[in-house]
């Protein structure tokens, strides 16, 4: 369980987060959404320890800031946005780095399995910087997965923190990545994701945290948080949610044409 109480953050003299409370449970995918500048990524950076500020973050009741990086790396992996690699490492070498830092270091097959999971087996021996932006993003996801391959180790849940994991991806790979994260949560691990795509969020999230101007506007299951009023208020535009009926056929008029 990840718990954070009264999380604040100041960047360049501006208060970005105002006393945010946050909880994420294992076995669930917790998705942080909100408009640009609402503090989503800043909240994630506070949760992962990349940023200091008021308020404490705990993992299973132990303060994260006090845990040695070596041990923390066995429990959780972090996928940042747009990581650049300074030297000509191949995809496999980068994934191997995650693998060696993680908790499956006795099972070398994990490297290739993690690469296969994101659909990049054919490019394992390419230089990472020769791959497209979307392929690089998936490559770094494979690195995070190779680090935290088992959702549960020694009876304790492991965690993936991901910042906009599908931002650079086409729709097919968006679904692939969301399913990788979903499977991880379904098998007992915990996922905390920052997302822009509200549809993918509605499809895959167990819990949604809606941020607005550095505060949590709503927190709960997708159907409770993703409502017309709340989204309209957060995104400052008129938003209407539609749901497909649970039973019976339905169609979208946009999909119809004159035969």
């Amino acid at each position: 369980m990840i718990e954070a109480r009264g999380i604040g953050a100041v960047l360049g003299g501006t208060k970005i987060l105002h006393g945010v409370d946050f909880t994420a449970r294992p076995g669930e995918m917790t998705v942080i959404v909100g408009p640009n500048g609402s503090g989503k990524t800043t909240l994630l950076r506070r949760l992962t320890g990349d940023l200091d500020g008021p308020g404490a973050v705990t993992l299973d009741a132990a303060p994260v800031a006090a845990m040695p990086p070596r041990l923390l790396a066995l429990r959780r992996a972090v996928l940042q946005q747009a990581v650049q690699v300074g030297f000509p490492f191949t995809l496999r070498e980068v994934v191997r780095m995650g693998f060696e830092a993680g908790h499956s270091a006795h099972a070398p097959a994990v490297v290739d399995m993690a690469i296969a999971e994101v659909g990049l087996s054919a490019k394992a021996d390419h230089f990472l910087h020769d791959l497209s932006g979307g392929e690089q993003a998936r490559g770094h996801l494979a690195r995070a997965r190779a680090q935290i391959w088992q959702p549960v180790t020694q009876g304790r849940a492991c965690w993936l923190f991901v910042d906009e994991p599908v931002a650079a991806l086409d729709i097919g790979h968006q679904i692939l990545v969301m399913e990788v994260l979903r499977r991880f949560a379904d098998t007992g691990g915990g996922v905390v994701a920052v997302m822009h795509d509200l549809n993918l969020t509605a499809m895959h999230a167990d819990r949604v945290v809606l941020m607005s101007e550095g505060r949590v506007l709503a927190d709960g299951p997708p159907e409770a948080v993703l409502t017309d009023d709340r989204l309209s208020a957060a995104y400052r535009s008129r938003i209407r949610i539609n749901t497909a009926p649970a039973q019976g056929p339905w169609l979208l008029p946009q999909m119809a044409g004159r035969g």
Partner: peptide, 18 residues
């Protein structure tokens, strides 16, 4: 240093005492 090729935060997340 290998991990730091991906930046200091990434290296820290991979357990490196940066």
């Amino acid at each position: 240093l290998n991990a730091m090729a991906m930046g200091e935060p990434a290296a820290r997340h991979m357990g490196v005492p940066v």
